[in-house]
Write a protein that binds this DNA or RNA. Structure first.
Lengths: 329, 329
DNA sequence: GTGAAAGCGCTAACAA
DNA sequence: TTGTTAGCGCTTTCAC
């Protein structure tokens, strides 16, 4: 496989000139440019990024940290990141931590060892101390989930307000007995969404019944089913459920159906995220739409700016309440 | 940021010795090893993979080519690949082509330019000519979808037999009027699964009615809905549907429900792939389970072997028919 | 057991 | 406009 030296020899020029042609510098005569291009074609030459990257001290790789690829929530964000990255000649290394610190460390090492130029962290379970420390010497952006204290710039939505809007919608259509399916409060978004839930209830003088708040360990479908099972078995059964993720809500939906009740007539359901699948269920799911694709592109742009040495500011994006069948018979 | 020179200086040894310590070579005295390790710690040194990779002419990155991240079918395969890759110190670059040749070429270039050591292609729409040409100088494995002619090793299942089993199951429980929701026959798996469908019908002397074979452009949910809409409007309405992907089947499910019919009482449905969601629908979906995780690990191992210069053989894995609610009242 | 030095393939500063 | 050359950070051969 040819290298730049051989191209230079073949074209009868120096390696510097070949490099200039490769990088589209305008200081090269049309004539020599053609000589070089001919040589490149003739030798089937492809410049090695290994050499270029070492020389430039960059990898042009962006590391994306997510807890689970299987969580569809990340799909559109990743798409957004990839679009923005590619347009600036970066590639993305998608890293699933599985909330496993060991795996996380493998990926952090990639940045420490210069194999990645920066990180977009979307993992709520990330070791924030390590991340903060890493941020001293490396470019890092938080996306969706974040820690304010870390000082690391983030893109996100106002989770509390979004949850507030969701629950307010349930109240407006007549519900007063509303359950909350939440996840572990060690996650910031869980605390924020619960705060929004409380705020909506309190604003309408509906007492917050702690018995109707359920905490799941994770965001998966089965956890939604389990929580709903408990809710269905509880005394003073709620007429509506707000789940902090679509996957949980879809689990709840399935459980309500299995129990022989109807959504939304017997129990209304609201989710959060507007994943693709929220439109495929029966009934379709009312949910909060986050601007995921945009969040992704912005995160990538912030990261690339940061890599270039710019100062970047955190951004809070808008969201939308999407009303569908699960709250409107 | 410290480099190997500074560590050598600090430790009072040569860079060669530092390198030896870094790579765990046993020819180093315990005493010097400790000196070096102390220096590393003191300087907070992290070896640069850029330097190492250039020197070793490798990137230790595996490129995974898929058409759409949003297709849940790939999730488990990717997981399998990642597990196997990490255990051998490789990382994966997940590349979504969107069936866009331009994007595909960006990714191919990464291999040509040494930024990736090999490719696992899972994109049915891949440009097989380019891939074949690339395979002359680079390590490539096909996973799930493949082209026999290309001569590129593959891991897959016997699609024809799997489809045959699925349709046979429908026949066994009493169906004779069975529709097929297929995708474009330019894809090998589409041709194979259709062949399995035909084989099952013919074996039971059921005439194949071309009017009951529907072709969709893609594998998405909406395409399943559309196809099912046509099926429901056709004369001599089928009592069962075999869809060549779960997403199509779930679309069909939704359409049947909206139409006011019951699954499986009025129409039975079988899908293909056993994606996570196939268990979350109402009713749950009978489907063909591919050993996705295993397929992924095997593909990764084959690729790494090939990178090392070994000869690798194609492999055909087993599948399973998973009977659930959509075919059993 | 350890060191000197070459070289992986490229870019850019400097010189001409 | 083009060429010479140093050097990015590492590994490895060859001496000692």
């Amino acid at each position: 496989m040819a290298n730049i030296q051989q191209v230079a020899k073949q074209a009868g020029v120096s390696v510097a000139t070949v490099s200039r042609v490769l990088n589209g510098q305008s200081t090269v005569t049309a004539k020599t440019r053609i000589k070089v291009e001919d040589a490149i074609k003739k030798l089937n030459y492809e410049p090695s990024l290994l050499g270029r990257n070492l020389r430039n001290s960059e990898s042009r790789i962006l590391l994306i940290l997510i807890p689970k690829i299987a969580n569809p929530f990340y799909l559109d964000i990743i798409n957004g990141i990839e679009t923005a990255a590619l347009s600036q000649n970066y590639n993305i290394l998608l890293c699933e931590t599985d909330s496993n610190p060991e795996r996380e460390n493998i990926y952090f090492d990639l940045v420490r060892k210069k194999m990645a130029d920066g990180i977009i962290s979307m993992d709520p379970a990330v070791n924030i101390d390590t991340l903060t420390e890493l941020a001293e010497r490396h470019a890092i952006i938080q996306c969706s989930e974040y820690s304010e204290d870390s000082g690391i710039p983030y893109v996100t939505i106002d989770n509390e307000e979004a949850a507030y809007r969701a629950v307010k919608h349930l109240i407006k259509i007549g519900h007063e007995n509303i359950a909350l399916i939440n996840t572990d409060e060690k996650y910031l978004y869980a605390r924020q969404r619960k705060a929004g839930y409380r705020k909506a209830l309190e604003e309408h003088n509906i007492p917050v019944n702690e018995d109707h708040i359920y905490y799941t360990q994770q965001l998966g479908f089965e956890y939604g089913q389990q929580a709903m099972k408990k809710i269905l078995g509880s005394k003073n059964r709620p007429t509506a459920v707000f789940a902090v993720s679509d996957l949980l809500a879809i689990g709840a939906l399935k459980e309500i159906n299995s129990y022989g009740l109807n959504v939304p007539d017997d129990i209304a359901v609201v989710g959060f995220d507007k994943i693709d699948f929220s439109n495929m269920t029966n009934p379709t799911l009312t949910t909060i739409a986050q601007p995921m694709h945009r969040m992704g592109t912005i995160a990538a742009e912030m990261l690339i700016d940061k890599i270039k040495g710019a100062d970047v500011e955190s951004i809070i994006l808008d969201y939308e309440l999407v009303i569908r069948e699960s709250t409107s018979g």
